[in-house]
Design a protein around this nucleic acid. Structure first.
Lengths: 236, 236
DNA sequence: TAACTTGTGTTAGAACTTCTAACAGCAGTA
DNA sequence: TACTGCTGTTAGAAGTTCTAACACAAGTTA
């Protein structure tokens, strides 16, 4: 009725502020994101931005939220585009889109998976977006031939099932959930070291290493290794 | 001759400052590490600490340096203690010590592997310490039966060999280097997500997942999977 | 049309931060 | 005794986040 225009201007102001914040993030890291500096670049004074964000933390939280949604959109699009392909190729499609997103904007990847902001608690919709990424991955893993429930489920199996249930994906067998989780940690392991610059001085191309691990996922989802993996050793 | 006592006091002052800095790091994250606050807790004024550290960045760099050395000491000790055991058990010894160090002081692990400090360049002795950790891992991997050089080495193989040569470990076969690197990224993948709190809301015990991946390393170092892995696919 | 409400900007200022400059004093040395 | 060097101090500049008080324009209502 009333403020439809004002509401739009308001939204545009927030978007512009966050755009500049991302520039600062990329250039100077998280400590370089300054409310004052953003305002200056926008041509207003510092306190003006407090009409749009409760404070610096609030702004940062929105950056985190946006990044989760953006990542989920990216991998979902790649997975959707791979519809009809064989599982190995769909896994590759997921993996490549995941890596593309990460190395294309390393500072945002670090915002999600790097050192957490102290006291940060992800709001519900952010958690949902994170789930979307994981669900996209699980959806390309082969489900056939996986027992829905093991005869003697391990502790980890139980946790995996509970986790899936809490996300409304009750039907996924624990073996698939485990493959998904392990696969994700493997891809993240390489990406994390890459975006934090650990490979730089080593002279090793992280893309090659990533691809090797990505292929290991294809095996993990379709090989002998995984079949007994929850029972391999230790107090599982 | 002269300042042996003064030098000692000076060193103790630095140690105390860094100890308090680590407390702040653990409690409030990296942004909470404040030169002024450290000085206050030590009973001196802020500028006094600038006699001991060139600035806040210098202090943080020392924390990073200390952490790398500490981590290397920890895994080296565990590897040394496992001397004589079978390779799988030595790999487990490495993995468990690595995880213990990380989860015992997650803020320090994040200092090494989380979001990097902008503009940070690791000095030589820090790089050496990082190498020590990797070397400890490589030393527990089985070397027997691995070809020193493949007939047609891949790009990644060549990079791995160059990397090993630059670290003065020329004799290690590329297959072992690859196993080491892949293994490390896998362990880090789980640890990274654990210390950044990603498993918390999922209700999954990262220790169990870590153990599963650790067992995959044992296979990786002694199974069929790795033998052709550098040639699996893509532009290697 | 006049008055009121709401949103958005301003300046002033408190309470922090890092870091430099200038100065004071103490310890050990020549 | 005088000198040198180290270590502390206070003062202050230039930042930061964030609140409070005020100004003003736009839209709504009487």
């Amino acid at each position: 009725m009333v403020n439809v225009r004002r509401e739009r201007f308001r939204e545009e102001t927030k978007v512009e502020a966050k755009r500049i914040a991302l520039e600062q993030l990329a250039e100077q890291g998280i400590a370089g994101v300054s409310v004052n500096a953003i305002a200056k670049r926008m041509g207003v004074t510092g306190p003006a931005l407090y009409r749009y964000f409760k404070g610096r933390d609030d702004l940062l939280n929105e950056l985190v939220r946006d990044a989760w949604h953006d990542l989920a959109d990216a991998v979902e699009a790649a997975v959707a585009a791979s519809e009809g392909a064989e599982p190995p190729d769909r896994v590759r499609a997921f993996g490549e889109s995941f890596r593309s997103w990460a190395v294309g904007q390393p500072h945002r990847y670090l915002l999600l998976f790097g050192t957490p902001l102290p006291g940060y608690q992800a709001p519900d919709d952010t958690i949902m977006a994170a789930h979307r990424t994981m669900s996209a991955f699980l959806s390309v893993l082969p489900h056939e031939g996986r027992a829905g429930a093991t005869a003697e489920p391990s502790t980890l199996d139980a946790q995996l099932v509970a986790w899936a249930n809490s996300r409304g994906e009750g039907g996924v067998p624990p073996a698939v959930l485990l493959t998904g989780l392990r696969g994700f940690t493997r891809l993240h392991g390489v990406l994390s070291l890459e975006v934090s610059g650990q490979f730089g001085p080593m002279g090793i191309d992280p893309a090659l290493l990533y691809r090797v691990e990505l292929e290991s996922l294809v095996l993990l989802g379709d090989s002998e290794e995984v079949r007994g993996s929850t029972r391999l050793s230790g107090p599982g």
